[in-house]
Design a protein around this nucleic acid. Sequence first.
DNA 1: GCCCATTTGTACGTATGTATG
DNA 2: GCATACATACGTACAAATGGG
Lengths: 84, 84
Amino acid sequence: MTTAVTLCCMVIEHGAPEPLYRQLAAIIRDRIASGEYPPRTRVPSITQLAAEHDIAEMTARKALDLLVGEGLLIAVSGRGTFVT
Amino acid sequence: MTTAVTLCCMVIEHGAPEPLYRQLAAIIRDRIASGEYPPRTRVPSITQLAAEHDIAEMTARKALDLLVGEGLLIAVSGRGTFVT
DNA sequence: GCCCATTTGTACGTATGTATG
DNA sequence: GCATACATACGTACAAATGGG
């Protein structure tokens, strides 16, 4: 028996029990784990993340801050945010 | 020879190279280390910290978030923020 | 159970500064 | 100089949890 991993359609839901910034952090965490965002590459900018997921920039920033705090990302002022 | 420890007048300075929220976090960290805020006790609320140090509530909140992330504090919704 | 004050949590808005290319 | 991107800081509103009366 195979294990079906359903990662399709990772969409942020307003009004979900999980807060928006945690939902976004989880999505990015998954993309890092899956190799979609390999080490040393740049993740989308705060502006891009906010636009793509239809959330406020502050909320996108909070998601990245969380992952930076976890050590998964490193933010470099003026350049972007990178996978460790 | 004695070692003089100057912890007097820990005042937050606007315009200092160190950002306000880091200054406040450092002050709280020192008070925990010195025993002024012993384990399991409550630190001042965000509203109190903001008023006492003449900074915005968001800035005080960010300082606490930083220390929560470091594991020095635990925030309990509706009750307060406590020293671990 | 209910109301109220307090406190943290989440989310959005805005402005300015700093760093990079 | 300029565009992009992160950093800091203030402002605001509402939700949720807690505890006291």
